[in-house]
């Protein structure tokens, strides 16, 4: 589904150019749950920004479902983001002066749907993340775990082809982290949702199918965690 070929990314600061991603080749198949690990500054966030159509300034080829992303305009990129990818961020990134319902509705509205069309979908998404009845709450009235669930509901609302989670448990306590990761595994197993997750936490990464380690802008290792052992772990918790 996702195919990166010889991706290079440079950041320019004044006269200095930093080579952040070096000759990255990566294939992510539909239904995979991939964890990306690496130290700060290793290029993980840059990589997922490219994968998630947030960054279209790179060298190399990125084909998503046989379509070359590098040749897309900003407008098309926005359209692609809206239809194909759901984002879950470390600090939730909810709009605090909008209700849970309004926050979740945003991707639908940009997809051209009216408010009346969104009602049922929002309810379904909230049920999916275990937040039934929280429609009219404001984010600041919710716990961190609940806010992250709202953010996951927002990511799922447009039925994206894949989810990108950038340290989704980074701002949560261990119990809540477990719940959120459990939610991700359920989504992956039950709905075959493709998930690409950046994390620093090995325990969290081990709940995925595959761990990719980035070091100094290159893929240092790409290992399967073992699908069956993940299942046992999931059922065990």
């Amino acid at each position: 589904m996702i195919c990166l070929s010889n991706i290079n990314k440079y950041y320019h600061q004044g006269k200095n150019a930093y080579h952040v991603l070096k000759n990255i080749d990566l294939v992510v198949r539909a239904g995979e749950f991939v964890a990306i690990m690496g130290q700060s500054g290793s290029g993980k966030s840059t990589l997922i920004n490219i994968i998630g159509f947030l960054d279209d300034h790179f060298d190399g080829d990125y084909t998503f479902e046989k379509k070359n992303i590098a040749q897309m305009s900003r407008q098309d990129c926005a359209h692609y983001r809206n239809r194909n990818v759901g984002f879950v961020f470390q600090n939730f990134k909810l709009i605090n002066n909008l209700t849970v319902k309004e926050n979740i509705a945003i991707p639908l509205l940009y997809a051209g749907q009216s408010f009346s069309q969104t009602e049922v979908k929002i309810e379904q998404a909230l049920n999916q993340v275990g937040l039934h009845g929280y429609q009219n709450q404001y984010p600041l009235n919710l716990s961190g775990g609940q806010q992250q669930r709202v953010s996951i509901a927002r990511a799922l609302i447009n039925k994206p082809k894949f989810l990108i989670a950038d340290e989704p448990t980074g701002a949560l306590d261990s119990q809540t982290s477990k719940e959120i990761i459990s939610l991700f595994t359920q989504l992956n197993l039950k709905s075959s949702m493709t998930i690409i997750m950046v994390t620093h936490d090995l325990a969290v990464a081990q709940k995925s199918q595959r761990i990719i380690r980035i070091m100094d802008g290159t893929i240092a290792s790409d290992q399967e965690t073992g699908y069956e052992s993940r299942l046992i772990n999931t059922n065990g918790t």
């Binding site: 926005a78 983001r81 990134k93 945003i106 940009y110 927002r154």
Partner: peptide, 8 residues
């Protein structure tokens, strides 16, 4: 946030 979730 709006740009990330698909606003052009």
């Amino acid at each position: 946030i709006r740009l990330a979730v698909g606003a052009s």
